[in-house]
Structure formats: structure tokens, C-alpha cells
């Protein structure tokens, strides 16, 4: 009896200890993620006297919007933001459609060169983007697209398509073929099967792929920096990176712009992350 009680106490202690441990891990990971973002936010709110204080103050003594005023006074941030949105959206739509067709074609049909295309789409994934930079620029300028967002979009197509194809191939592979085959036997055309059965079954996977492509395109810097020269055509990453060129880093302004660019994308993602998670966990990527 006593031993049992002791065991119970021990178990409870063990349970409590584990709870504390998990609590600590949760707190630590939240802290690690939140701190850099918090620091960017409060740095953007500190007036210049406090911003350059040493040691830095963890909770700002006073809050001012002077950096935001300066940042938005003359800057093109809204334009950059719009550009990024356009580039990422168009890239996402095009890549998702092309890759869905492509991946379905590659997984469900047999034809000459199928294997080669499959393999080379993955091989394309490990080509350094920097290697594509100069030749892609030539392609884009030959097409006379250098002063439009289409140049950046083309660059981002090259960067994101291989990954999207690869992801979607594994999504389509994870769907049992039997359903489609029975529909075919029942006289449905291949395209109807694709449209009415395969796509709905794979929708979560397609949606997550789309979100991934959007994020990749939104964050890309290298190609976007080369493909346009007009200020009014710069994407957010490029526009912001210009502010940290070492000629003059105005930390307050830079922190304000950093905050202003990070918050919208985080909010947007928070709204749709449920579908992202659903899709990615729907059973793909098992190797």
C-alpha cells in the first residue's frame, strides 16, 4: 500500500517535472522566435537618443513614430510592397498550374523522356541560382522585359518550378490510382478524371505547394536585384536591401521599414497557414 502510494507520488512528481520541462521548452522556443522580431519592432519605436544608448534598453522608455514618418515620407515602400505582391502572386499562379499539369502528366502517363524530365526537374533544383543570373538576364533583356516585373517573374519561375514539380509528384504518387482507374473503366475521359478526381483529391497538396512558391518568391533577393533597375519596379527585398547598402545605414529608418515589411507577410501567412499545414501533412514527402 505504502509502496503503491510512493509510486503514485513519484509518478506525480515525474509528471510535474515533465510538465515543467515541456513548459520551459515551449517558453524558450517562443522566446527565441519572438525576441528578434520584438527587438526589430521596439528599435523602430525608440527615439534616436535611446536607439543609440549603450547598454540598450530592453523596454523602451519612450515611444516615438519619428522613424516611421521619415521612412514613409519619401520612400517607395508601398510600391515595393505592391510589386512583391504582384510578382509573387503571378509566379505562384503560373508555377502551380504548370507544375500541377506537369506532375500529373509525369506520374500518370508513360511516354518517351518521362524519366529524364522527372530526374532533370530535381536536378534543376540544385543548380546555384547565381549560375542562372547572367544568362537569365540575357533572356529577359532579349525579350525586352527588363523594365517590367515580368523579368523578375521569369526569374522566379526558374527558381520555383523544379521544387513545385518535385513536391507535386510526391503528392500525386501518394494518391491511390485505383479511384482514377475505376473512373476510367466507367468511361470517363482522362481529362475529366484529372479535373474531377485527381485535382480535388490533391487540392490540399496543390494549395501548400502554391503557398511555398509564394513564400520563396516573396523572399528572393538575388535575381530580383538584377532583373530590374527601375526604382518603381523593385520588390520589397531589393528595396529594403538598398537601405542597408553600407553607404549609410540609418538604423531607425531601416528598423521601421523592416517591421513594416515583416508584419503584413506574417499576418497574411497566419491567416492561411492552416491550409498550408493541412496540405503538407496530407501524406506527401515520404521519400
Amino acid at each position: 500500500m505504502i509502496i503503491m502510494l510512493e509510486n503514485k507520488v513519484k509518478k506525480r512528481e515525474k509528471h510535474l517535472f515533465r510538465k515543467c520541462l515541456i513548459g520551459a521548452i515551449v517558453a524558450l522556443s517562443i522566446g527565441m522566435i519572438a525576441f528578434p522580431l520584438y527587438w526589430m519592432l521596439i528599435s523602430s519605436l525608440k527615439p534616436s537618443t535611446e536607439l543609440f544608448a549603450s547598454p540598450p534598453t530592453i523596454f523602451p522608455k519612450s515611444i516615438s513614430l519619428e522613424w516611421y514618418k521619415k521612412a514613409f515620407q519619401n520612400s517607395m515602400v508601398l510600391t515595393y510592397f505592391g510589386n512583391s505582391f504582384i510578382v509573387s502572386s503571378i509566379t505562384t499562379v503560373v508555377v502551380t498550374i504548370v507544375a500541377t499539369f506537369g506532375a500529373y502528366g509525369l506520374t500518370r502517363f508513360r511516354f518517351v523522356g518521362r524519366k529524364i524530365i522527372t530526374v532533370s526537374s530535381l536536378a534543376a533544383y540544385c543548380i546555384p541560382p547565381i549560375m542562372l543570373m547572367v544568362p537569365l538576364y540575357r533572356v529577359v533583356s532579349k525579350l525586352r522585359l527588363i523594365s517590367s516585373l515580368l523579368g523578375v517573374i521569369i526569374g522566379h519561375l526558374a527558381l520555383t518550378l523544379p521544387f513545385a514539380i518535385w513536391l507535386l509528384i510526391s503528392f500525386f504518387k501518394s494518391i491511390p490510382r485505383e479511384i482514377e482507374e475505376s473512373a476510367l473503366v466507367n468511361g470517363a475521359s482522362e481529362f475529366t478524371v484529372f479535373r474531377k478526381i485527381a485535382i480535388p483529391l490533391c487540392a490540399p497538396g496543390i494549395l501548400s505547394t502554391a503557398i511555398l512558391v509564394f513564400i520563396l518568391s516573396w523572399n528572393e533577393y538575388l535575381l530580383a536585384s538584377v532583373m530590374v533597375s527601375q526604382d518603381s519596379m523593385k520588390t520589397l527585398t531589393v528595396g529594403l536591401a538598398n537601405y542597408i547598402s553600407n553607404v549609410q545605414i540609418d538604423w531607425g529608418i531601416v528598423m521601421a521599414l523592416g517591421t513594416a515589411t515583416t508584419i503584413p507577410i506574417v499576418l497574411m501567412f497566419s491567416l492561411i497557414q492552416k491550409y498550408f499545414v493541412e496540405g503538407l501533412t496530407a501524406g506527401a514527402i515520404k521519400g
Binding site: S29, I33, P36, N219, T262, I265, V266, Q273, V277
Partner: peptide, 19 residues
């Protein structure tokens, strides 16, 4: 919450790191 860093632009991270 743990997914947030995935969408923070690299350029913002670079700013934070340097600051």
C-alpha cells in the same frame, strides 16, 4: 507560432542580425 520564421524575409533577418 513556430511557423512564423518561415515567412520572415531574409532581408529583415539580415537587418536584425546586424543590428
Amino acid at each position: 507560432f513556430l511557423l512564423i520564421p518561415y515567412v520572415v524575409p531574409a532581408v529583415s533577418i539580415a537587418l536584425i542580425a546586424r543590428w
